[in-house]
Design a protein around this nucleic acid. Sequence first.
DNA 1: TAGTTAGTAAAGCAATTGCTTGACTAACAA
DNA 2: TTGTTAGTCAAGCAATTGCTTTACTAACTA
Lengths: 118, 118
Amino acid sequence: MVKHVLNQLLEPDLDLVFHALADPGRRSMVERLSEGPASVSELGLPLAMSLAAVVQHVQVLEASGLVLSHKVGRTRTCRINPAVLRSAEHWITQRRARWERTLDRLGEYLAENEGEGQ
Amino acid sequence: MVKHVLNQLLEPDLDLVFHALADPGRRSMVERLSEGPASVSELGLPLAMSLAAVVQHVQVLEASGLVLSHKVGRTRTCRINPAVLRSAEHWITQRRARWERTLDRLGEYLAENEGEGQ
DNA sequence: TAGTTAGTAAAGCAATTGCTTGACTAACAA
DNA sequence: TTGTTAGTCAAGCAATTGCTTTACTAACTA
């Protein structure tokens, strides 16, 4: 379990990361955290759900590695982990770049062999 | 229903996009498609599941706007929609950039007020 | 000390996922 | 024409999600 979490710091699990980002409430939390650290209740403030539900969303974000937290007194303060955000970004960038190279090659091919339509 | 799909071409639904990317099978399909168009069965080739299941995954990808397809004869050919990939990328980039500006401001603040630890 | 606040844990529940199988259609091949 | 291939549709089913409520603990406040 601990090892699991450590592994994610080294190499994020994209299943967990994208799943975490697939929920509008969790994205709003990431959005809020991108402006600076916040407590669990602060994150839930705009969300019209019980605190227990907010806690569960935060747990999903932490399990993905997108969010880190530490508890002082009775309040848990969360902050963003940019490395994991970056790894999701990177995966997408790579696929898109690959596709755009493919498109370029197709363009060259079509330029060389004029005449064929769609 | 048609309108739904059209809206996604104008402004992608990130819930659907990130959810589509949260599955390893579907990511493998996007990966494959980044190297060029492919049929539904080709996409399913490395996936150890029934063709019906593959079709369902392709439907999830299409509903998200990440993948476009057209049918010729009995084969449906799929290709990537880079615009939607880019919009997911963009959302992440923005949050990360925002957080990094926040970090920078914190760095300046700490540089100006030396002496305080964590 | 008594009361409030911040968060957790657990159980329960309806809705959604990610498959399966089986029946079917249309297109291509021999 | 007969068979095979590519894909689709519909049920059905176990596992997972995204909440809820209740009960609880620990920490701060008056």
